[in-house]
Simulated assay, not measured.
Amino acid sequence: MKKLLHKILRKKIKLFLEKLRYRNPNKNDIIKLISRLRPENTGIELIRLGNENDGGYLVPDVLKDIEACFSPGVGNVTSFESACAKMGMKIYMADASVVNPVPGNPQYNFIKKFIGKEGKDDFITLENWILDAGIDPKADLLLQMDIEGYEYEVLNSTSLRTLKRFKIVVIEFHELHMLWNPKYFSKAKKAFDKLLKNHVCVHIHPNNCCGIKEVNGIEFPVVAEFSFLRKNEIIELGNEIEIPHRLDRNNTNKKTIKLPEIWYVG
């Protein structure tokens, strides 16, 4: 009986401490975070790399001097990576859930690992993956990451120095409607804050796989693809952007969805 009471007490203490650690975000907190993520016109044209549907992404047309593309969560669709390879980039892919999708091609480097916050078992950190590649530390890189919700913890566990190596960052962010959850908001805000120190958002495309959800008067794309550009590459900053972009395409055969205006209109 005492053991049971101690277990219940420990659980209540843990929940209490968690509430102290994770403050409930209010509407202003959510809107402030969204406002910092709104895409900006950098004076650089966006182009589409990859498939016309899922697997294709919009990126700024500053790809010429990028040494390598790192693509965690590659799956079996490699159209984006193939487009980068044609531009002369070395391709690094990681995914423990698939076999090598492009075997026998020396331009493609594949490891059967998940990218995570720590390196153990089937996981490797983004930091160590890049170090193991042995690329010139001064070379510009591109990151295209779709790892089903683990993107926040990977960003939070990666140093600013490493993130700054990426001239372009493309990430599919998941469960955005969960920003109202205190613990989720805390880790997501920390990840976005870190990314926005050296990068600016240039495009958001809502994945029509999962629709739009309204929570407490704010509309969220449940899943969305974000494209970022390193700040030192920016030519100019303006507010006039094209949303949806003429090159945007549906990811699935489901109903087309539009990015809610709060995500791109100030």
Rank of each mutant, 00 (worst) to 15 (best):
L4Y: 15
L5C: 11
K11T: 13
L17M: 13
E18P: 01
R23V: 13
K27C: 13
N28Q: 15
D29I: 10
S35R: 14
S35F: 05
L37T: 09
R38E: 07
P39K: 08
N41E: 11
G43F: 10
L49S: 04
G50L: 04
N51A: 15
D54F: 12
Y57L: 09
V59S: 03
V59H: 01
P60E: 03
D61W: 02
I66A: 09
I66H: 01
P72E: 03
P72T: 06
P72W: 00
P72Q: 05
N76Q: 15
F80C: 04
A83K: 08
K90Y: 14
M93R: 03
V102A: 01
Q107P: 00
I111E: 11
K112G: 05
I115M: 03
I115S: 00
G116V: 02
W129G: 00
A133G: 01
G134D: 04
L141N: 01
Q144Y: 04
I147T: 00
E148M: 07
E148R: 08
Y152A: 11
E153V: 12
E153Y: 06
L155N: 06
S157D: 08
I168H: 03
V169F: 00
E172C: 08
H174T: 07
W180N: 06
N181D: 15
F185T: 02
F185C: 05
D193K: 04
I204T: 05
I204N: 02
P206W: 09
I212L: 10
N216T: 04
I218M: 05
E219Y: 12
E219H: 11
F220H: 08
V223G: 09
A224S: 14
F226Y: 15
S227R: 02
F228Y: 14
F228W: 10
R230W: 06
K231G: 04
L237A: 06
R249G: 13
N251T: 08
T252V: 05
T256N: 12
W263G: 03
